[in-house]
């Protein structure tokens, strides 16, 4: 495996944790829908996509292991709340409202699409090749959720207004996906990963195009402030974390 200079270790681990933690928690939240989605096939599909997300997270934790030597399960389940670097939108409760789940999934999946695309051009090849492989699967996730947005947007007056409301609810949290993790400038300067300055624009154009076509509107704007990417999380994240750690913490050294 290509060696990564010591000075890049912490910054790259932060970037990898952002991806892995987003996917772990989004997959965890979405898996709550298993058995409860509005129609049987939607249930099977959403569960299948959640499994993917958790599998993707695990692949990123394994890549972190190659740098830090930590066991992937330990990384995933036994950190303190302020050591998780997901954006809080992934744990924002959907109140078992399907439109909410779809809005959260839409913002996050499209963001992940652009993030993985960027990471697949990383000069550190283990990251580039993993990101490229996961990106191919991310395309399916984006297609899936895009279909939902279009059908609900164009379905009935009721489905359109519920979808619109959900897009509005999640919009302010969506922008926090773009908060920069600590040390990312070092990676740009070292040409380890390419500067993602305009990713917000790409993402917004994509989101606007889909929502316009669906007769909906996503009011998203860049935000500043300290949030999940720097380990500062709200109450909903902490609840999710407790839930996620509940089983693991009964026996942290068990082989699952």
């Amino acid at each position: 495996m290509q060696e990564l200079d010591q000075q890049f270790h912490n910054p790259i681990v932060n970037v990898l944790l952002c991806v892995a933690d987003d996917k772990l928690f989004l997959g965890h939240k979405n898996s709550d829908w298993t058995g409860l989605a509005p129609i049987l096939e939607a249930d099977i599909a959403f569960s299948s996509l959640s499994q993917d997300d958790i599998a993707h997270a695990s692949a990123f934790y394994e890549l972190i292991q190659t740098i830090t030597g930590q066991n992937p399960d330990q990384i995933a389940f036994s950190r303190n709340a302020n050591e998780y670097l997901c954006a809080d939108i992934v744990t924002k409760d959907d109140s078992f409202n399907w439109a909410n789940a779809i809005a959260r999934q839409f913002y996050c999946n499209v963001y992940e699409y652009y993030r993985l695309q960027r990471l697949s051009t990383a000069s550190w090849t283990p990251l580039a090749s993993l990101a490229k492989r996961i990106f191919a699967e991310q395309v399916i996730h984006v297609d899936h959720v895009t279909s939902w947005i279009k059908h609900l947007g164009k379905g009935s007056g009721d489905s359109n207004s519920r979808m619109q409301q959900a897009l509005d609810t999640y919009a302010p949290f969506a922008s926090m996906l773009f908060e920069a993790p600590e040390g990312i400038e070092t990676l740009f300067e070292g040409k380890i990963i390419s500067d993602d300055g305009c990713m917000f624009t790409e993402w917004k154009e994509h989101v606007d195009q889909v929502t316009n076509e669906a007769g909906l509107k996503a009011t998203v704007a860049p935000v500043s402030g300290v949030g999940g990417r720097r380990g500062s999380h709200g109450a909903e994240f902490k609840e999710s974390l407790c839930e996620l750690q509940e089983v693991f913490s009964t026996d942290p050294l068990a082989a699952w």
């Binding site: 129609i39 049987l40 096939e41 939607a42 099977i44 599909a45 299948s48 899936h144 279909s147 059908h151």
Partner: peptide, 16 residues
């Protein structure tokens, strides 16, 4: 599988 239209049918078939 049960689905409201062809688009959903293929989307669901891919996952199921």
């Amino acid at each position: 599988l049960g689905a409201p239209n062809a688009d959903f049918a293929q989307m669901f078939a891919r996952e199921h």
